[in-house]
């Protein structure tokens, strides 16, 4: 299972990634979680099940959904407050729920 987070430069999302990894480790889940910048997204998208957008780049939702949803990637925007408070557990939970939904 691979979850990818994307924001403008991948900096603030990388902080959330650490919290999500912690949350995943606590539940001993085998999840690969990474943060990338919008520019380098293409290089890292292979194998991704869930693509989460930082709320500050939610204007990319339409474009990225159109691009990756046909390939079976779930695309969603991270909740603003979860994002701001760096609530890794909640974001991970929602990502897992998304992945469970489609496949």
């Amino acid at each position: 299972m691979k979850i990818l987070l994307v924001c403008s430069e991948g900096m603030s999302t990388s902080m959330l990634v650490q919290k999500m990894r912690q949350a995943a480790a606590e539940r001993s889940l085998e999840v690969e979680i990474d943060a990338v910048s919008e520019v380098s997204l293409k290089k890292h998208i292979a194998g991704t099940q869930v693509l989460l957008l930082g709320p500050q780049v939610r204007y990319l939702l339409k474009k990225l959904s159109a691009e990756y949803e046909p390939a079976g990637v779930h695309v969603a925007v991270i909740d603003m407050v979860d994002y701001g408070r760096m609530n890794g557990a909640a974001v991970l939970e929602k990502a897992l729920a998304l992945a469970a939904q489609g496949s």
Partner: peptide
């Protein structure tokens, strides 16, 4: 929110304050 935002803030990253305060 302050504790969470301090270290990133030193490097001029402030999404935690902007979205967390909010």
């Amino acid at each position: 929110v302050g504790r969470l935002s301090l270290v990133p803030g030193l490097f001029n990253i402030n999404e935690p304050v902007v979205f967390g305060l909010p």
